[in-house]
Design a protein around this nucleic acid. Structure first.
Lengths: 145, 145
DNA sequence: CCGCATCCAAAATGATACTG
DNA sequence: CAGTATCATTTTGGATGCGG
C-alpha cells in the first residue's frame, strides 16, 4: 500500500519522494537506453522467462518483430551488458543468447509489468478470461523485488 | 531469489514459466499501449511521485520533452485511463493532471525500474556517487508490489 | 504567461528480399 | 541459421504561432 496517496486533508505540500534522485537521467525512464526502446522488454521476456536462446526462435515467438529490429536489439542488449552471445558453431552459424547478471536483474521489472497487465488487461493476456494472479502463474518465484 | 536460474545439472527441459500467459499481447511489453512509448514513464513519474500537476511544470521538469509530445502523451494517458484532467479554470486555461487508480497501479513498475537503475546506473541518477537503496530513498513506501 | 496546434525535418521502425 | 540491404511508413524533434 502506498502512503503517498492523497488523504482527505492532505495538501500539496506533502513530502516529495526522493528529490535527490535524478529520475530524468534514468536510462530506462528516459528511453535513452535499450530498455526504453520498442520490442526490448518482449525480447528479454522470451530469453529470461521462456529460456529461448536462438535468433529465429526468438523472432518467431514475437509476432511482428522483424530480423532487422531483433538484431539491433540483441546487439544493443549485448553492448549494454544485459545479454551475452555464445557462438556454438560456425557455418551455418549457431548462436545462443543468455542473460547476464544485469539482465537477470531486469526480471523484477518484467514481473511488475505483468502484474499490472493481468489486472488491467486480462482479456489481452489470457485466453480463458478467468482471473489469475502472479502467485498462480509463477508459483516458485518471489517477485518483483 | 529466482529459482528459474540455471543450476549445475539443470537442463533446457526445465519448466517454462507461465505458458498460459500471452505475453506477446501485453500492451506495455509489446509497446502497443502508451506505457511502452517514449517519455511516458517519465511523465508518470513526475505526476505520481513528484505530484506535479500542471502542463508547463511537467514539461519543465523533463528536459528535452517538447510541448508537442507532452500533449500527445497526456491525452493518450487520459484515454487509456491512467490519468485524469481537472479543468481548474478557463481563460487562461488551467488544467490539473492526476493519477487514476489504474495510474496509481503503475507506481510499482516505476519503482522496480528505479530499483534496477540505482544498482546498475548509480552515476546517472545520483549526484553524490554514494550508494543508496530504495528503502533509504522511499522510507515510507512499500514497493514494488 | 497558459495549454495546445501547425508545419516540416529527422529518427526509428516495418516490409521484403537477399547473403555467407 | 543468423544476420544484411534497401526502401516505405510511422513516430518523434524543433521551431513557431495563436487564441484565451
Amino acid at each position: 500500500m502506498y502512503t503517498m496517496q492523497k488523504k482527505a486533508q492532505a495538501t500539496t505540500s506533502d513530502r516529495v519522494p526522493a528529490p535527490e534522485v535524478n529520475f530524468q537521467t534514468c536510462p530506462f525512464l528516459a528511453s535513452t537506453g535499450v530498455l526504453g526502446k520498442k520490442w526490448t522488454l518482449l525480447i528479454l521476456w522470451v530469453i529470461a522467462l521462456l529460456r529461448i536462446k536462438r535468433f529465429n526462435q526468438i523472432r518467431r515467438s514475437i509476432p511482428g518483430l522483424t530480423s532487422r529490429v531483433l538484431v539491433m536489439r540483441l546487439h544493443e542488449l549485448e553492448k549494454s551488458g544485459h545479454i551475452e552471445a555464445l557462438i556454438v558453431k560456425e557455418s551455418p552459424r549457431v548462436v545462443e543468447w543468455t542473460l547476464t547478471e544485469k539482465g537477470t536483474d531486469t526480471i523484477p521489472i518484467l514481473m511488475s509489468i505483468m502484474n499490472f497487465t493481468i489486472k488491467w488487461y486480462p482479456d489481452e493476456v489470457f485466453g480463458d478470461n478467468k482471473s489469475h494472479t502472479m502467485n498462480e502463474l509463477f508459483p516458485e518465484t518471489e517477485y518483483p523485488r
